[in-house]
Design a protein around this nucleic acid. Structure first.
Length: 301
DNA sequence: AATTGTTTAACCTTGG
DNA sequence: CCAAGGTTAAACAATT
């Protein structure tokens, strides 16, 4: 769990860009995604400077959210409460400040239009799932999954939520899939940790982790093959590329994944390093509901 | 009506 | 210096 920022700047303008501030807010949140109002709140809580001239800097911040590819807008149909979407970081944008400066990045983070389109189609699909699930069942049997009122970075911890429903209530195989999602090594989004270079032992470990990930991905693939007929049909399209994905051939991944029409799930199947776990969980709940409702047939795909 | 999001455009700042 | 990154302003659409 990210440790709280202890440095205060009083009335001084903190030496962070809006992008940094926003990323900090997101990374400190329990689900690594926040609605706009919570981003505001984080910044104002941590940096008194931003308790003034709110119209001005909030306008700037919104500009940054829209303008920069590193921020992804995640639809919020999971519950009707609240307005606006959630904002999260593009998984590949985490190295944005690797030069150590939180004021100015070495290079703007950009994604190609193709990838943007693919992400957007994912998100649209999530919306569709959410809408369908909401229609199916307005009284949510798994309300504890809702993100509503659970954005508070001050009180929440990651362990507080049982993200995974009890095994008995989950279709066989899917639990395995979810449980095997690798937990990202924790790295607090603080000045110190961002400036600090990766240790050599950390590098070595990540190589090991990489190798293990490939095996895990293969296992997950098998599990998933066993759980969804649609997947059986879809996966052959991408089977030949899976071995290479640890080399992070992301375009290949995205293309393959797009063909499967299984938004985000394939991110995890084939890219164990993927960091949008909150999005996955979000999606998974919808899948779960739909799976139950359609009694396994999942014609919605 | 207020909030949220998108876009354009000018200006300022910084690193190379 | 200058190109790229960052800030600010502003108009406007969309959503609730």
């Amino acid at each position: 769990m990210p440790r709280p920022l202890k440095v205060t700047y009083g009335d001084q303008k903190p030496p962070y860009s809006y992008i940094s501030l926003t990323a900090m807010a997101i990374m400190h949140s329990p689900h690594k995604m926040l609605p706009l109002s919570e981003i505001y709140r984080f910044i104002m809580d941590k940096f008194p400077y931003y308790r003034n001239n709110m119209q001005k800097w909030q306008n700037s911040l919104r500009h940054n959210l829209s303008f920069n590819d590193c921020f992804i807008k995640v639809p919020r149909n999971i519950s009707k409460a609240g307005k606006g979407s959630y904002w999260t970081l593009h998984p590949k944008a985490l190295g944005m400040f690797e030069n150590g400066s939180l004021l100015r990045r070495r290079k703007r983070f950009r994604v190609k239009q193709l990838e943007k389109d693919l992400i957007n189609s994912d998100l649209a699909a999530i919306s569709a799932y959410s809408a369908a699930a909401a229609q199916i069942n307005s009284t949510d049997p798994h309300a504890e999954w809702n993100l509503t009122n659970d954005n508070d970075y001050r009180t929440s911890t990651l362990k507080q939520k049982q993200y995974y429903v009890e095994p008995a209530t989950v279709p066989l195989g899917v639990t395995d899939l979810v449980d095997s999602i690798p937990v990202r090594p924790k790295r607090a989004f603080t000045i110190e940790s961002l400036i600090a270079p990766e240790t050599s032992s950390g590098m070595a470990r990540s190589a090991v982790h990489d190798a293990r990930s490939i095996a895990q991905a293969a296992h997950r693939k098998q599990v998933f093959l066993n759980t969804s007929s649609r997947c059986v049909e879809a996966i052959p399209d991408v089977g030949s590329t899976t071995a290479n994905l640890a080399q992070s051939n992301f375009n290949q991944l995205m293309t393959a994944h797009h063909q499967t029409h299984l938004p985000l799930i394939t991110h995890y199947l084939y890219n164990p390093q993927h960091t949008l776990n909150t999005m996955y969980i979000y999606q998974h709940k919808q899948l779960h509901d739909l799976r139950n409702h359609f009694n396994g047939s999942l014609s919605i795909f």
